[in-house]
């Protein structure tokens, strides 16, 4: 098996991402814009429906919504794809010596591109609203890294679970559909009752990220506890996911 950090593997990573771009409509500017249509359609619908209910009390509500939609959509799309990645790429992984992590990371990166484009649009919106500061922008970078770590870690755990039980995919699809409602995408945590707020903050790993990201881009800045909570979740989930993946990848691959 080739070295994960070697030149060949880095080149492989780049080629896999490049091929994924060329394979989809991202290979053209119009295609990339087309893929952004879904989040903006969602943004428009949520804004029209909830503007009067939540828009008054939440600052820069369109930006608030777009951040929530971008985070939840990327998380849902990427993790759903990663859960079946060993199965979908079985011929490749059983007939070549490509590191399995590279295939996983290439998919995280490919879908992460669209998420990053949405983050750039959020940054432009934040500039428009005058809510972005240098400190906020700098604080965003570690949060995004931790978020990618969270997605990768959960994807790896999901890929291992899928090899044990095939309905993991269906269960996870159901969970990700619920995420749009159990994550403060269009409402604020403050609008919830104390027990609901506790559950949604502590049991939904996306909530600390979203709170910290919104604090950095819209303000007021989230407390250090929220920020550290988000970074810690990303790191711990990645380490746990990678450990689970490493210890079971061979048998998972054979079972898949």
């Amino acid at each position: 098996m080739r070295s994960f950090f070697g030149e060949e593997n880095r080149a492989l990573f780049v080629e896999l991402v490049r091929a994924a771009f060329k394979h989809t409509d991202h290979n053209s500017v119009a295609g990339a814009l087309w893929s952004l249509l879904a989040p903006f359609a969602m943004l428009s619908a949520l804004y029209l429906v909830f503007r009067e209910r939540f828009g008054e009390e939440l600052k820069a509500y369109p930006l608030y919504l777009l951040l929530g939609i971008a985070v939840v959509s990327y998380f849902a799309t990427a993790t759903r794809l990663l859960i079946t990645i060993l199965f979908a790429n079985r011929p490749l992984l059983l007939n070549t010596s490509v590191p399995r992590e590279t295939v996983i990371l290439s998919q995280v990166a490919f879908h992460g591109y669209k998420f990053l484009v949405e983050m750039v649009l959020c940054t432009l919106l934040a500039l428009h609203y005058g809510t972005l500061t240098w400190q906020g922008l700098l604080a965003t970078l570690p949060l995004l890294l931790a978020f990618f770590a969270l997605v990768t870690g959960i994807g790896m755990i999901g890929a291992v679970l899928f090899s044990f039980a095939r309905d993991t995919e269906h269960i996870w699809t159901l969970v990700t559909h619920l995420l749009m409602f159990v994550t403060p995408v269009f409402y604020g945590l403050e609008s919830l009752s104390a027990p609901a707020r506790f559950i949604i903050y502590w049991l939904n790993p996306l909530t600390p990220f979203l709170e910290a990201l919104r604090g950095a881009m819209i303000g007021p800045a989230a407390g250090a506890g929220v920020y550290l909570h988000a970074l810690l979740i990303g790191t711990v989930v990645l380490v746990a996911g990678y450990a689970a993946f490493l210890s079971t990848e061979s048998s998972a691959m054979e079972r898949t």
Partner: peptide, 26 residues
């Protein structure tokens, strides 16, 4: 046949199949 992408051109597939078999674009 494994390591190619059907929708990509022959020219692009040379780099993809090559990378999968340890051959860099360079």
């Amino acid at each position: 046949t494994i390591g190619f992408m059907q929708e990509l051109s022959v020219a692009d597939n040379v780099y993809l199949f090559g990378a999968i078999h340890g051959l860099t674009r360079r």
